[in-house]
Design a protein around this nucleic acid. Structure first.
Lengths: 341, 341
DNA sequence: CGTTTTTCCGTAAACGTTTACGACAACACA
DNA sequence: TGTGTTGTCGTAAACGTTTACGGAAAAACG
């Protein structure tokens, strides 16, 4: 049904080699011949078979983003990822690469999907997100020498790969600073597993800032939950029942904040009135919540573009001129002051 | 670097044909030979090159889901799609198929990404979502004879393809019925473009039910906005300024409801107290909002599985036994009563 | 023992590309 | 006219699979 390069060749009475060269813009083909080939390609509705091309070139010209649910949870953190993916895909498209998103099955801790993509060579490189402090995916990819980049840092030592992260540590500290400046001293933190690196970074900033202000960190004001609405809802009451109630809460995430505010509402506590609330990663949800939640906004779309660039530069086939290769970058989180603190 | 079928053959001193047959579980290979091949495959860390396989078989063994932003908007409706995709991918994996998600670029009205997937044969079939009343994507695919299925119906006549949709019409009517039974007669509707088929269906149910109750539909109580938080926020005040204020609002979507409730809050109107609120498609956001929003919950994950099944049955290569093939199904939306109405 | 069937395996072609190599003509130059 | 250069194209191999076909040996059968 679909026309191949042979059809074009037959139709034009020339060889497939010439057709291919004409299509690929090679120099050694007559201008007029090229014109005829391009016209015929349009007329016969030709477009190259990707499998044939991949097989010959040993490259699929596509990059895979692994969308993996948080273990113990069905959450993917989508509202966060979509703008990032938009930027990623835009930049990749500029270089003629396709972005494909591979869904991990919930409960797939063995990285079955990732292995599948790598081993069957469905993509030339992969992008990982939600890096963990010790991330077996990174070990796996580095060991096999498969190209990859990560959104988020990891503790994995000695490996060299492009990574882009947000400065969660500074955001955690900034949040504390802001609250202290407004007179708060009992500041709670609702966080996910410390295994998730951004949770760890956030808490580092939180602790450091508290100490800097001479405030002792109270374990009773820190609670861990799943990084979704249910997690925030379940866990927030715990810190509110601390013997000396917090006057402020920092949530690591918009979904946790939503659940947390629900729990607060049920206790008759109004964010912005009775308690200050700040969320680390801002999304549209924060803006349209009542009261609007103060948060730190990441530049997700530019980050996607940037990580694509970094990844491309690290790929043998795309390595540009000599310029020094950026390996890791940490981007700032910008505070958006609203009504909740 | 990666081992091919030739490496296995050389290593075992047999022919590549036998290796392939052994690997693919064909009958005409000695049990002991097969055992040796499988062992060697494990030892040499072999897995088949997907490009080679696709080229030979003329099938990629993967299905593409097109994730397209709503025109005029950057919204993808992710919280809705993720559970659906989870079901889809689970069922496809059972049949050895991979699911890949292809991100449409915002503003890509010419379906450039879709064309790309189809023409370069990156997938054996595609799944479309957010069908429009007249959907040029469906026309395109049907015309080319490319296998596809849709989440959502369309008006496109005469074409035969598997589709699965929710009964938005009934949900719209049910919402009205419920509100009328509770004494409301001025019921507003916040909807997206009628071009989106689910918006159209919702409004059909809404109108029919109002008429059934002898209530005239008031154009002043209907407003159209982008299907996101900003849309709900911008448009909700419009219906509230109607000369005879509504006592209830039905939102087509959780994000629109969030924005709408923000607007209401700014006007000093409390959902659940001063006005009844119902949202058609329920998500975790509705549950954890304060007050918790009454809504209609779709069975998204089972729907994903079901659509995968329907798509598989329609594929020549996977067509099972003769059983009658379901072509279109409409699933119910279950009302979850909460606090907002 | 001769014939037929079965079991197992090797050979080679094919899928649709890209590309190294060489051929041939046209042209320039001495 | 002979030699080199340039421009354009065809040939054929290669990428990693799957599979139709046939053949040899073993088994079954008379």
């Amino acid at each position: 049904m679909a026309s191949s390069i042979h059809d074009l060749a037959r139709h034009l009475n020339i060889s497939i080699g010439t057709v291919s060269r004409a299509l690929n813009g090679r120099a050694d083909v007559n201008a007029e011949t090229r014109q005829r080939v391009l016209e015929a390609a349009r007329k016969l509705n030709y477009s190259p078979n990707q499998s044939g091309r991949s097989l010959r070139q040993g490259a699929t010209r596509s990059i895979a983003f692994m969308l993996q649910p948080h273990p113990g949870d069905q959450q993917y953190g989508e509202p966060f990822f979509i703008p990032f993916l938009t930027g990623l895909q835009a930049r990749l498209a500029e270089s003629g690469l396709d972005l494909i998103v591979v869904m991990g099955a919930p409960g797939d801790y063995q990285q079955e999907r990732l292995r599948r993509v790598v081993e069957t060579r469905r993509a030339d490189a992969v992008v990982l997100a939600w890096t963990r402090r010790d991330d077996e995916r990174i070990d796996y990819l580095a060991e096999r020498g498969f190209p990859f980049a990560t959104l988020g840092r990891s503790r994995s030592g000695g490996k060299s790969y492009p990574s882009l992260d947000l400065d969660f540590e500074k955001a955690g500290a900034d949040a504390v600073d802001r609250l202290v400046a407004r007179g708060h001293r009992r500041i709670a933190a609702i966080r996910p597993s410390l295994d998730l690196n951004f949770g760890h970074l956030f808490m580092t900033g939180y602790r450091k800032a508290l100490r800097r202000h001479g405030i002792e960190v109270d374990p009773g004001l820190i609670a861990e939950g799943f990084i979704n609405e249910a997690g925030g809802y379940q866990v927030t009451p715990r810190v509110m029942l601390s013997k000396d109630r917090p006057t402020a809460i920092i949530f690591n995430n918009d979904a946790m904040a939503l659940g947390g505010c629900k729990a607060l509402a049920e206790m008759g506590i109004r964010p912005g009135h009775d308690i200050a609330v700040i969320v680390i990663v801002d999304t549209p949800l924060c803006r349209y919540f009542s009261p609007a939640l103060t948060g730190f906004r990441p530049a997700l779309e530019p980050m996607g573009q940037r990580l694509a660039e970094m990844l491309l530069a690290s790929l043998p086939a795309h390595a540009g001129p000599e310029g020094p290769r950026t390996i890791r970058e940490v981007w700032p989180l910008e505070l958006i002051a609203r009504e909740s603190d």
